[in-house]
Design a protein around this nucleic acid. Sequence first.
DNA 1: CCAATTGTTCAATAACTTTTGAACTAAGGA
DNA 2: TCCTTAGTTCAAAAGTTATTGAACAATTGG
Lengths: 118, 118
Amino acid sequence: MTLPHPNTDQISLPIVLGVLGDPTRLAIVRYLASKEGVPLNCSQFLDLGSKTNLSYHLAKLREAGVTRAEVVGTSRLITLRRADLDSRFPGLLDSVITAAGDDAALPMIGGHNIEVPA
Amino acid sequence: MTLPHPNTDQISLPIVLGVLGDPTRLAIVRYLASKEGVPLNCSQFLDLGSKTNLSYHLAKLREAGVTRAEVVGTSRLITLRRADLDSRFPGLLDSVITAAGDDAALPMIGGHNIEVPA
DNA sequence: CCAATTGTTCAATAACTTTTGAACTAAGGA
DNA sequence: TCCTTAGTTCAAAAGTTATTGAACAATTGG
């Protein structure tokens, strides 16, 4: 059971920008970026909305090619498609994540999102 | 008679991304970037839609802080707020413009948008 | 003044997006 | 097998955005 994802060359700039132009989804992406390497499952985003609503937003991110979802048991392990996005739109993801990093208007997960420097 | 624009610090990341997530507006921004320094008026975008519709899209770009519109006679001279966007979201505009540069799916103005290298 | 040019505003409609709850599937553990 | 956990799907409702045409304003040139 695998979920549908666009190929790298099918990722569309306006669709990616549109998908990121939603505070909930931007918060998801910011959180994924702050935990890069650690695959997260949907329930870790429940601070941002109901289960149904997150299913919707995570599907949007996946269908746009921003995230990858791997089915493992009853979970979906979600990761950022960083390499694909970097190759398709160089610098875009970094600048978005940097800009989102200090955006207090975005919803938060667990009370903190930003990796506080030592 | 001046039109309302957000201050640089009022420019919101999700709003900017949402506004750029529309092919017509992305085409406007790409064209503005390709003519940077040359202020353009609304009628130069008529390839992209009706006069009314462009008025709508250009207002969205202006209200989001992506463009500036200066009233000169009956014209509005439109420019990209590059310095403001660069200071607020470093690298974002460049990566968007670069990615949009070779996007054949975006509507075009005057049959060519991309500065062809010599 | 008159006409043309440039662009806005308004109201209507069409199209899309977001959110919700209830019902559902599929896997895993007791 | 039965129950729980994890997440999806569906249909409805609510909200938002895009597009259109007609009417409007403001400036400029004749």
